[in-house]
Design a protein around this nucleic acid. Sequence first.
DNA 1: ACCCCTAATGACTGACCAGTCAGTAACTAA
DNA 2: TTAGTTACTGACTGGTCAGTCATTAGGGGT
Lengths: 210, 210
Amino acid sequence: MTDQSVTKAKRQRRPDDRPAEILAAALSVFAEKGFSQARMEDVAARAGLSKGALYLYFPDKVALLKALVQQAIGGQISLAAEMLAQLNGPVSPLVIHLAQILASRVQDTPFPYILKLVIAESQAHPEIGRFYLENVIRQAMPIIEALLARGIAAGEFREVNVPHAVKSLMGPFLLSALWRSVFEPLGAEAVDVRGLITQHVDIFLKGLRP
Amino acid sequence: MTDQSVTKAKRQRRPDDRPAEILAAALSVFAEKGFSQARMEDVAARAGLSKGALYLYFPDKVALLKALVQQAIGGQISLAAEMLAQLNGPVSPLVIHLAQILASRVQDTPFPYILKLVIAESQAHPEIGRFYLENVIRQAMPIIEALLARGIAAGEFREVNVPHAVKSLMGPFLLSALWRSVFEPLGAEAVDVRGLITQHVDIFLKGLRP
DNA sequence: ACCCCTAATGACTGACCAGTCAGTAACTAA
DNA sequence: TTAGTTACTGACTGGTCAGTCATTAGGGGT
């Protein structure tokens, strides 16, 4: 009952664990209040640190946001790229599989909140937006384009403009991500991301039949 | 050459024109810097006013944003509702027509910037987000749902989950709006909104065939 | 010409907060 | 035990900016 972890958490030295804890705290504070409304003291308090200690680990507030975005996207794209490039055979099952993976990213990870932060802060801090553009969008789009192009070449899909088709496919992911991070907190009814995506991919693939 | 409108624009009294000018100035400043980075003095300067005068027309900064959102969406939805309800016959041409109207909103109006502002500020100012949810999303969705349901009832479309289908249809609009307002300013290649939407609707309608 | 009302001004205030730094506590090695 | 090292603290500073208000200028009415 006099335990420090519950009541007051007295001063501790564990430099190895701090960065991850700070990032987790930052994500939850930023998601709750938005970047510019979030105070560094809030982040510090939630991480169980003083404000000063924050600055031992991150040079400034923007660095926190950058690290958050960087951590959230990780090396996941190059991973997916390898997976999709190596599998051959019909493309449709791959599209379905890819869509399911992305749906669970939207449903079960903080990705929607990261995305909202990127959108919100991209003109105040263009480096953030540019980082996302370079490392997520410009990585992911050619992979999906290649996938659809393969389907067209194999006669599995009819001839369409491939970059446009990629956006047709991805649009509803963006919509459900923002729905979750922006409108659900305001009281909108929850989206059934998996159901939506399953049906969307079905419509999309049928719509692409020759 | 000593004209006041070009060089210095001396103090003038024209209370009737001010509100619209202030809103136009606010939109351009907010779109450029984002809401929280935008200074009231910037808005005032761009509207050709002093900061103090701004407060004669709008009680505070958030009121400016609210008025902007309100003006941008106007009564356009109820208008569209009437149009779609009165026309009968096959649904597909109506979907195509509706999509073209929305595409031009994305392409030719500041709507994408308004949307970005709503997304960015909705947790700092939930009233803004809630206003958009109530007056845009919750107005527009039932209209499109009714349209698709009519198509299903008439045997024009196969049986699908209608709310999901609406999101499949609308996703790419959201994507192109945010592409224009967020990523194009960062150097991303421009989207051909009309081309994208034309093809998207084509895929969507073919994908819904019984 | 002179009021007088009201639009408009801009210097000012008060609150807020990112980032700093002199000092303190925890741990370590001798 | 103690001297040295490093993690951590929190009061403080400097700058920013939304919103205010005493004052000034415009211009219609008489």
